[in-house]
Amino acid sequence: MFDIGFWELLLIAIIGLIVLGPERLPVAIRTVRGWIGNVRRFSDSVKNELNEELRIQELHANLKKAEQVNMENLSPEVAESVKSLKEAAEQVTKPYMKTTETTTANTIENKENN
């Protein structure tokens, strides 16, 4: 990323020691390390989001291809995309189904108890 060698780092450390002194230098290093960690986490999250968006775009394109051929004679990659979309749809609806079933069961229990 940055083309900084050993001698450049040594020069930065010496200047930091002279400017900040031995008491404040460790605190400054921890602060900078925290900033760098935050930047890395942010860049990783952005990268992951972009990868997910690209994957979603690919799934949508494959789904459109499948719709054009009326879901018959699908290529293996398009069939796999359709299968993963179906699984994702099932995972999305399952928590709501469980909540609805639990609510219905609780309502029936309350009516029986009263």
Rank of each mutant, 00 (worst) to 15 (best):
P26V: 02
G5S: 05
N70S: 05
V19R: 03
T104A: 13
K65V: 06
V82E: 00
A105G: 00
A66W: 07
V78N: 02
N110M: 13
V39S: 02
N73Y: 04
E80A: 12
E80S: 06
T107F: 10
I14Y: 13
A89I: 10
M97W: 09
N106T: 04
V39E: 03
V39K: 05
L20F: 14
E8T: 09
A61I: 01
Q57D: 06
L17T: 12
V39W: 06
K86F: 14
Y96I: 01
E112Q: 13
L20Q: 07
A88D: 10
L54C: 01
A61N: 01
F42I: 05
F2Q: 11
V92W: 11
I12V: 12
V19K: 08
T99V: 08
V27M: 06
I14P: 00
K86M: 14
G34K: 08
I108P: 01
A13L: 12
V78M: 01
I29T: 12
L20A: 13
I29D: 02
Y96Q: 04
M97K: 12
R40W: 03
M71G: 02
H60A: 15
E23K: 15
E8I: 02
G37H: 07
V82Q: 02
N70P: 00
L50D: 13
L11G: 03
V69Q: 10
A89Q: 10
Q91D: 15
L85P: 00
R55G: 01
E23Y: 15
T107G: 00
L74I: 09
E58Q: 12
T107I: 10
N62Q: 15
V82G: 00
I12R: 11
S45D: 03
N51W: 09
M71I: 07
A66G: 04
L25Q: 04
M71N: 06
A66M: 09
A66L: 11
Q57H: 03
V39N: 02
L54N: 04
I29Q: 04
M97I: 14
A13T: 08
S75Y: 06
V27L: 14
I14S: 08
T99D: 10
F2H: 09
P22H: 15
A89N: 08
N51C: 05
E80H: 07
T102C: 09
A89G: 01
A79H: 01
V19W: 07
E77D: 15
I108R: 10
S75T: 15
R55F: 09
T99M: 14
G16R: 00
K111N: 08
K111E: 11
E101T: 06
E80W: 10
L74A: 09
P26T: 01
L59P: 00
T102E: 14
T102R: 11
R24T: 08
R55W: 03
A28K: 07
E77N: 12
N51R: 12
A61W: 00
V69S: 06
L20K: 03
E109N: 12
N51E: 15
I108N: 06
T31K: 02
N110S: 14
R24A: 13
K111G: 02
N51F: 10
V46R: 05
N51V: 05
L85S: 02
K98R: 08
A89L: 14
L63W: 13
I18C: 11
Q91R: 14
A79W: 03
L54I: 02
L85I: 13
K83V: 04
M1P: 08
S84W: 07
T104E: 12
K64L: 15
E58L: 15
H60G: 05
E67R: 10
N48R: 14
